[in-house]
Write a protein that binds this DNA or RNA. Structure first.
Lengths: 179, 179
DNA sequence: TACTATATTTAGTTATAACTAAACACACAA
DNA sequence: TTGTGTGTTTAGTTATAACTAAATATAGTA
């Protein structure tokens, strides 16, 4: 039976990660689940997670799968045991890269593509209109924005493709930027 | 009277930015407002923005101020004219830095601080408990997480403090990472 | 001072997404 | 097969946040 005080400290931590989760527009439950797993020395089953949080099995089931898709937790199955066990990924840099990789398929990149589509629309239009002040202005603006997104996209690809990424990687970038 | 086709293209663009906005957990209206201003050669009044979007004045009023706080749009007042006019910031790198700067005061950093607080709680606890397996494990985990956050925090500060940031800055980082 | 054009705030509504409780599906065991 | 322990899905509920319409505040003008 664990000490009450540790449980209190854990509860604070759980709440903290829940808020962070919420800040990023994710369900609070996801932060809570990750916090529980992150502090647990051994992998936990769905029901164990339910016990440690204020959520029901259904909510945990869906949230924990989302976490797994993002690479924040991993599923583990034990031989001769029907339960699934989950544990937290503790390499956060790996998580970042995993999320950036998944970004390709996402709703986000489809939205980004729409900027490219806008540019094509503008450029494919009949010539007589093209001279108008508004058209020229809009076209230049959209070109600028696309260039920005493309640049960021490059960066994301490079990060996602890194063999390794760690504290040191960030330090190097910081040193570069400070120059 | 502008051509219908330009308006159609604009409408698509507006919808695209609305989706991006939504993806980041922000109101769709913010994306729409920014899109309208971004494509407009001249600054627009509240009422003009209302005309170009599907939202009411109240909604635009609050959203446009949020955008201004984030540095994505700017307010302009003309002498002898009571209206406020808004125009889009077109230097997206400036926007990034402006957002990172604002981050300090935010709910987010308060949540991050809670990780530090958890660590202090763990370390300030009575010694007799400290040896327990769970405590040691939790303490190490929280130390790791705090170190990760501190590292990111450094990066954010450096970026926010840059005198200039542009495509070239990103290129340099990409080159560094590719090595 | 009162009037007018504007922006902001507010109270109430609507839309959305998280969550619950319970039914369901599945795999394994007897 | 049936029964049992598990994870998943679903229909309905609740909580939250965006939005609307209208009232209010504000700043400039006569």
């Amino acid at each position: 039976m664990p000490s009450t005080e540790l449980n209190e400290i854990k509860a604070n931590f759980i709440q903290g990660l829940s808020q962070i989760s919420q800040f990023w527009g994710l369900p609070k439950s996801m932060g809570a689940i990750f916090a529980v797993l992150y502090l647990s020395p051994n992998a936990l089953s769905l029901d164990e997670i339910v016990e440690e949080t204020t959520f029901t099995k259904g909510a945990i089931s869906t949230s924990v799968r989302t976490l797994a898709r993002m690479g924040l937790v991993h599923r583990q199955t034990k031989l001769g045991d029907r339960k699934d066990y989950y544990f937290a990924e503790d390499d956060f840099y790996k998580v970042i890269r995993s999320i950036l990789k998944g970004r390709e398929n996402s709703e986000f990149s489809r939205a980004i593509d729409s900027v490219g589509a806008t540019l094509e629309n503008l450029q494919a239009s009949p010539n007589q209109e093209r001279g108008a002040e508004d058209w020229v202005f809009a076209e230049n603006r959209v070109i600028e924005m696309k260039s920005f997104f493309d640049n960021l996209d490059n960066l994301v690809h490079v990060i996602a493709a890194l063999e390794t990424m760690n504290q040191n990687t960030v330090q190097k970038v910081i040193r570069l930027l400070k120059k």
